[in-house]
Design a protein around this nucleic acid. Structure first.
Lengths: 225, 225
DNA sequence: GTAATGATTTAGGCATTCCTAAAACCAGTC
DNA sequence: GACTGGTTTTAGGAATGCCTAAATCATTAC
């Protein structure tokens, strides 16, 4: 039953299914294959194994959904991942845009005992360095953010709440811009049809009042005022 | 060439071969199999692979010796292992007799960057919590200790230098006795034929002057006076 | 010198997880 | 209702690393 009973592969599949499921509901084989960097054929094979373990519900050609058991494990893996990201950034000074890859490896070797120690040393944090919430030990996770930068009108202000860490290049881009969780921004201009927008960073060190443009619209935000 | 080019299995084999080689010179298949918990047949198979990679010299029926390339990797793995043990004990408060198992998993996922950060946070330590020396980045490692408790005469004093961590049960036993690196002891009695001996612990908290008997003779020591 | 004993290797298999190529399926278009 | 394009699954295979059982080797004892 515990996390450590499953292979790293299984853990990675469940974690990724959870991620996609939060965005799209049912998880298609191809979407999963793309995110994992495996071929669709391989994914089909593993899906059958997960279904046999009662970790996902699988209807051929219809994609998968996590069972409660699968979701429980996914949340444990994600908790490990985000706690470690936070720990690497805070205790070891790893730049926040580089912690993801490292955590990807460490999440699989973290014992429950060490998880508790790290959690305590950090003072029981609630988010990782990208702003994503850390699941509680009991599997509790707040609902996803509902507003993105692209939802704002020109002139509106907001606080960056969470930055996606799926694409390393985009993450580095955000880091260079100074666009990280906690930063206040104001929308200066919006391209038509939901294209790139320009924002003013209100209180970033070295960049007060600086304006940046580009594909920053995918950030989750908490609107201000 | 770098450590991460090799599988965890290969890393474990090289590390273990290095360990045994330090004690016994040439490494027999059976000795390796026992230490790794694998069957001798499996070990033969892997040895052939290591030989093909030029990491060991292998003469059938004659055991193996590490090549310079193999030794380099072994020392990197051991450096990872001991640095992590030290880190777990010092930064996360893991009891010193329990760090080994945890480090066994973590050693394989430590990047060079993180190795440097951990090394710096610890202030560039030279030994792990069992008293074993941490190889330097360039692969330097001091020669093994030459004196064991069992080499001492009744009445002689010494400082515990290193405690073997191969057997978890024995390690727990040492921890319970308070017999850890840095502790000063005096030999009170010696059984004949190199059997168990009795020592007085001179400066252990809660145990000043306490005497313990049993198989404590395997500890490495630095004789005093 | 030969025979027994223990160490080592070979032979044959199994589990995991991935791959490519080919077949099957599904949905939207004409 | 058949076609077509994209999605998904099946079929067949490869690499890794482990196992047991059976042969082979080396050494020690007599």
């Amino acid at each position: 039953m515990p996390l450590s009973e499953h292979t790293e592969s299984v853990q990675d599949y469940l974690k990724t299914i959870f991620d996609i499921q939060r965005e799209h509901g049912r998880v298609a084989t191809t979407a999963l294959a793309e995110r994992l960097g495996n071929s669709p054929a391989s994914v089909t094979g593993m899906i059958k194994k997960l279904a046999a373990l009662n970790l996902v519900e699988y209807e051929p050609y219809q994609g998968v959904v996590l069972t409660p058991a699968g979701e429980k494990i996914a949340l444990e893996v994600i908790r490990h991942h985000r706690l470690i990201e936070r720990y690497l950034a805070e205790a070891l000074g790893v730049p926040w845009d580089q912690v993801h890859a490292e955590a990807e490896k460490w999440e699989h070797v973290l014992s429950e005992d060490l998880e508790d120690r790290i959690d305590a040393v950090l003072g029981y944090p609630t988010t990782d360095p990208h702003g994503a919430p850390i699941p509680k030990r009991d599997g509790t996770l707040p609902p996803p953010h509902t507003t993105r930068l692209s939802d704002l009108q020109t002139g509106q202000s907001a606080t960056i709440a969470e930055v996606s860490d799926h694409d390393p290049a985009m993450l580095r881009y955000f880091a260079e811009l100074g666009l990280r969780p906690g930063v206040d921004v104001t929308v200066v201009a919006v391209a038509p049809f939901g294209g790139p927008l320009t924002v003013r960073l209100d209180d970033v060190e070295h960049a007060v009042g600086r304006e940046v443009a580009g594909y920053v619209a995918v950030c989750d935000v908490t609107p201000v005022g």
